[in-house]
Amino acid sequence: MCRVFHKNPANSLLVAKQMLNPQILTLGFGLMVGLTIPNSTFCLAQGQTLPNVHYLLNSNQPPGAVASMQVARGNLGVGTFQAVSLIAPPGTQIALARDGMFLDPIDAPVTTAMLVGSVYRFRVTGIPFQTAEEVFPTLEIIDRTFAPNGREHRFPIPIVLTLEDLRLALDGALVTRVIYLEDSEIAEPVALAPGEQRVIDVEPNVNALKTADQLGRPMAILRIGSRTPADLNGDLSQFLFGCPPWMPLPVAPSREGLIQSGLAWPAATNVVPATEKNNEPIEDTPKLESY
């Protein structure tokens, strides 16, 4: 019996695809074939996967482990800039790091381009009802999207920091979010408001990266509440993971916002509505008559 996996094996984070040693890869493939064929039909088509796959990577690994593996694999997106939008509750401010130090905070949301395969540390202040507190989340970019050329900024990866996450982090918990690209063919038929993100909570003993990999394509890992710097005025290069580069992006306005702002819009001619007869539903389908 083949398990439905809904995942392209070429992009998967499966261990069988990531073994760099050819001998291990050969052995693993041999075991995979030997264990699979007697039990069931060997199915590797899209939408299916191998059973009992061991995941080498785990979301509980330290920041940079998954991204380093992506770099070691020579993943296609490594080395490119990916549009990322940091979304936080109203009033929250976010400060990115540059040249070994945090810059002045700006109001969220912050849309920027980050390097795939890097780990970014940023500073969150102005948390509602806890304005004196601050957290230093990390964001690990592990994959990229393939937006149409010139429109990458319109489809950033939304990194949502909810108020609940920030409060949990301030209470001493480590909140890990694996942001994944949802597979459109198996997406839940639920409507989401702009800026809203579907969240699936998993137990601490579950590999969140594996769960995200089964639902789509993991894109980034957000960790909130892991560490705080000993001295903000000291050497922060290690705390900032080498301060990888990022680039600012202008925020693309929405179409509805453009309409409401009264900007020029192509005039559309009036349309004669369809007759009532065309829109009448038939009582019992089908009632076709041959001619």
Binding site: L56, S59, I157, V175, T176, L181, E182, A212, L215
Partner: peptide
Amino acid sequence: YAPRFGSVRQVHGMQVASKSILTHRVDAPL
């Protein structure tokens, strides 16, 4: 082209979090 993103959230307590950043977990296998 309409990508939609979701997230898988996991909340660890302090003890679990401290285990996950121990050195020996870092050195093996990565």
